[in-house]
Design a protein around this nucleic acid. Structure first.
Length: 563
RNA sequence: UGGGGUGUAGCCAAGCGGUAAGGCAGCGGGUUUUGAUCCCGUCAUUCGCAGGUUCGAAUCCUGCCACCCCAGCCA
């Protein structure tokens, strides 16, 4: 993947890369760079995770280091092995390779337990029999200090015995926990004797019934970093005030390595949500078709939508890494997608909402073949032959009976070029009983065939078309933003901000025959309409195309501005 | 009344005491058989605000303001 160099000027190193460079210059960690991407297997990865993945794997790659893919599976209540597989696929799809460095926090349960015992021995942890509610009360508030638990003064021997009994399952869930003994008066609530282990009498997806006590995030994560020799533990801003606890744990135990935590701001995208809770709610309530619904900001959704992984990476690169809260506009992502697809996707013709036209001066029953380039800017990609004849379909939007000024498509008595073929003139409109125009009678100019001597005659517009008899039916799924508010959470209930038109399905569309050869997941540009990707998940039979992204459309902008 | 962070254009983002990079969006123009692409031009006398230091401040100091995160036996 590193073979692709972005065309854009080199971006300056972000603060994290600057810091790593400084660490290496100072000889810290022996110059090594080891990172990790630590997802919890309780949901699918989304665009926010892509930032973390690109950062962690990217940094390791750039500095000749290593990156672990570590599943943070310390809470068997919420996690599931099926998510592990999905996450592996997503990381691989994005273009990163963890080699033999796929680990689980649960791989370290035994060592983690030994560390907990060591903390108890050093008088730095105790078994607390306060209830969850009492612990909360004793913790104090943001502005008032907490109080010490009456169990805080238990002896090392008693704590050792109690913790062992916790492990053996002699206590019920919630009866007691293991806590660190730090400072109940700290201004940082994470230091008010945080819970290290809790009892969960449920089978773990990987360790089965081996354990009934499970480590908490701060404990497991910090020590896993140390065990794996992580040098730079990169995480998001909300963990900033966990860093003192992270460092405290590293200070108290004799560990082989001393990692450092560095925080950066998470990526927020306008007009969507990226909280796992909300995304799973969309799936569970059937608001979207699944985690891989093309409207979802998940990697699986973007893949099915047709976003190239290169474009996602380029987008992440453009967005940068800082500590500032941010909300990135959708346009930035779409721009990266268009930029990649513009050079890589072949061109095809299809009509989204067909309007029939008949060329009355074209001999009945006769057809000809016209040649269309697969990529106008890249002749090496060849061309294809398309049948042309008397009965065709054009885009309904490309005809207006009473058009505004500067509308240079087809109008009564007007001329337009059919892409790659002839110039035609609209002679007559056929209406149904309601007065609706349902068909156009036209005539073509035989001198204007593309490539012929008369073809240089200028007309204002060029529109796309398909040949009626040879066109194939296609189903087009037109996607738009999932929410109609830039910040769906802004008004409280994010579900109220759902965009009712986030999916419009066009079942009557017609495409040129070459579209039948499109493979699942393959993307083409339907000229003047947008980039479309053959759906990889829908049943065979109908050809289903997902609209990946529209083309930039300055006419649509003019129209909108006029209104 | 606590602790931790962040403020540079509509959205991102460089800058690290020597006179505001770049991208996205926008705007103007050129090319074009995709109203696409491509090309050219334009877009911050000013960096949250107010003082101070300095020949010189977005960068250093002081004070203020705004916004975000933290009171799970979640991660």
């Amino acid at each position: 993947m590193s073979s692709e160099q972005p065309a854009s000027p080199v971006s300056p190193a972000d603060f994290i890369r600057q810091r790593i460079t400084a660490d290496r210059a100072a000889g810290r960690h022996g110059g090594a760079v080891v990172t990790r991407f630590p997802p919890e297997p309780n949901g699918y990865l989304h665009i926010g995770h892509a930032k973390s993945i690109c950062l962690n794997f990217g940094v390791a790659e750039e500095f000749g280091g290593r990156c672990f893919l570590r599943f943070d599976d310390t809470n068997p209540l919420r996690e599931d092995e099926t998510f592990v597989q999905a996450i592996r696929e997503d990381v691989a799809w994005l273009g990163f390779d963890w080699g033999d460095r796929l680990t689980h926090a649960s791989d370290y349960f035994e060592r983690l337990h030994a560390c907990a015992v060591e903390l108890i021995r050093r008088g730095l942890a105790y078994v607390d029999h306060l209830s969850a509610e009492q612990i909360r009360e004793y913790r104090g508030t943001l502005t008032a200090p907490g109080r010490e638990s009456p169990y805080r003064a238990r002896s090392v021997e008693e704590n050792l015995e109690l913790f062992e009994r916790m492990r053996r399952g002699e206590f019920a869930e919630g009866e007691c926990v293991l806590r660190a003994r730090i400072d109940m008066a700290s201004g940082n609530i994470n230091l008010r004797d945080p819970t290290l282990y809790r009892i969960r009498k449920v089978a773990h997806q990987r360790t089965g019934e081996a354990w009934c006590i499970y480590p908490m995030y701060d404990f497991a994560h910090t020590l896993s970093d140390a065990f794996e020799g992580i040098t730079h533990s990169l995480c998001t801003l909300e963990f900033e005030d966990h860093r003192p606890l992270y460092d405290w744990l590293l200070d108290q135990l004799d560990l082989p390595h001393r990692p450092q935590q560095i925080e950066f701001s998470r990526l927020n995208l306008a007009f969507t949500v990226t909280s796992k809770r909300k995304l799973s709610q969309l799936v569970e309530r059937g608001i979207v078709a699944g985690w891989d619904d093309p409207r979802m900001p998940t990697l699986a959704g973007m893949r099915r939508r047709g976003y190239p992984p290169e474009a996602v990476r380029e987008f992440i690169r453009r967005v940068g890494v800082t500590k500032k809260e941010n909300t990135i506009e959708m346009g930035a992502l779409e721009s990266a997608v268009r930029e990649h697809l513009n050079v890589h996707a072949e061109r095809r013709l299809a009509v989204q909402r067909p309007l029939k036209i008949v060329l009355e001066n074209w001999p009945d029953g006769q057809t000809e073949t016209v040649s269309l380039p697969n990529h106008p800017a890249d002749p090496a990609r060849g061309s294809r032959e398309v049948i042309f004849g008397r009965e065709l379909y054009i885009e309904a939007d490309d005809f207006m009976e009473d058009p505004p000024r500067k509308f240079h498509r087809l109008k009564p008595g007007g001329e337009v070029r059919l892409r790659g073929a002839f110039i035609i003139r609209c002679d007559e409109m056929i209406r149904d009983e309601t007065g609706q125009v349902v068909e156009l009678r036209c005539s073509y100019d035989p001198e204007t065939r593309s490539g012929a001597s008369g073809a240089d005659r200028k007309v204002k517009g060029t529109i796309h078309w398909v040949h009626a008899a040879s066109a194939i039916p296609v189903e087009l799924r037109l996607y738009d933003r999932l929410f109609s508010a830039a910040d769906p959470d802004g008004q409280g209930d994010y579900l109220a901000a759902l965009n009712p038109e986030s999916l419009v399905t066009l079942t009557g569309a017609l495409g040129e025959p070459a579209l039948a050869a499109l493979g699942p997941g393959e993307t083409v540009q339907l000229e003047r309409a947008g980039y479309f990707t053959r759906d990889a998940a829908s049943a065979t039979g109908v050809l289903v195309l997902n609209r990946t992204v529209t083309l930039r459309d300055s006419w649509a902008r003019l129209e909108a501005a006029a209104r």
